[in-house]
Nucleic acid binder design. Sequence first.
DNA 1: CAGTGGTCTAGACCACGAA
DNA 2: TCGTGGTCTAGACCACTGT
Lengths: 244, 244
Amino acid sequence: MANRYQHVADELRRLIDAGVWPVGERLPPESELAERFRVSTPTLRNALEVLQSEGLVEKRHGSGNFVRRPEPRLRYLTGSWSTHAPAGNTAVVVHCETAVAAADSRLSALLNVTVGSPLTEYIFVSHSGAWPRTLVRVYVPETAGQLGSPTDGLSPWGDSVRHRLAADDIHVVATTEQITARFPTADEAHALHITSRTPVLALERLGYDANQCVVEVALLVLPGDRSEVLVTTDSPIKKLETTG
Amino acid sequence: MANRYQHVADELRRLIDAGVWPVGERLPPESELAERFRVSTPTLRNALEVLQSEGLVEKRHGSGNFVRRPEPRLRYLTGSWSTHAPAGNTAVVVHCETAVAAADSRLSALLNVTVGSPLTEYIFVSHSGAWPRTLVRVYVPETAGQLGSPTDGLSPWGDSVRHRLAADDIHVVATTEQITARFPTADEAHALHITSRTPVLALERLGYDANQCVVEVALLVLPGDRSEVLVTTDSPIKKLETTG
DNA sequence: CAGTGGTCTAGACCACGAA
DNA sequence: TCGTGGTCTAGACCACTGT
């Protein structure tokens, strides 16, 4: 019924759960595993990709496949911005670069500027442990003051851009976030040190000021195996209670 | 720099945007495209998978690959439950099945019941056009009354389960939603008529009552090419405004 | 039944990492 | 340098769709 590689993935998952390979340990080479399961190497690699997307296995080019330590996924909390990392996110190092980019048709429409007009682009890459975890690109009109690239104590989610905007008296009072699942582009895969076959969460965040104008566009790319989005709704759901 | 199939994907995207194949039209067979781009068929298929995950191409087994009509993606609005479909979602047909499932270790821990105890499982599959769009599985303790499988006017997101709970005086007052990107399981791929290589959004929704107890667990599987999640934060962001 | 996409194979060759 | 994973190939065979 299921595909062949999914059966292999199931079997590998069972073996890992059974502790055949300790957490953090290297799996046998792919060629050896392929031989053991009597499948070709591409089929075995498909199985490993499934386990990788589940966060159970970590692939290291040139080194091997490793049983992943159950480090918590990096969490993006929506609806509740904070400058301090939420609990469970330990030792996240964030790098930020600033550049000037020309607005493409999409960004120009969103930010209500002409195509080609200069935007300030902030690129945040967060590392947790040895590998990158998140890639965030934030675009604001160049009229906003420069960030000056502070490199310490940064949030992985580009919050400092909003601080910078607030210093210029531009206040983001509403946010919409659109989330889809897709494959990373070549650039994104390279920046995140992931295969281009790893599913990623792509989150597009729009920040609105009091006049309902978009003043900030952020593109977040979160590898499915290392990060997740957490949405919390604390308020009672009125409609349901009255309709029920 | 980039992979070969990504170059092919770029070229195909360019041709589609240029209108070489009208929207809704069938692309040439994969064998022919592979020959034209001088790549093997697996490589060409990788390129098509990229375009599919972007929602630009729709694959139909046995029929061909089609330039996708720009139908809006099905939207899951978080933080604002409503019984009526949000604007832009037209003609969504929802099928619901009810079953009794035994709680596995994960569900039992969440719902605070013993492993193996009976749960009511609701399976919602929504169709928009000819193909399924969303798969939602909702689990509640069996103590709750039966839904009786209403089959009309259903929300694709399992809202009717909350109505049913409310009728039993169980009120969901808070919700957390955890979102990741991964590959679908064989079952999910089959139910959604997608390849098991299509990235999906996996959303796990927990409904809490006033006592902070989980009374509802929902697993939403949203194919990346056909659906998206929209998060809206309307309230001012206090922390940012005071810090800035 | 013919034509299409879906899956898998066996193997070549390249790129990376550690010794 | 060598062993590892990453990519691509050419082709076989199966499954689905429409005639």
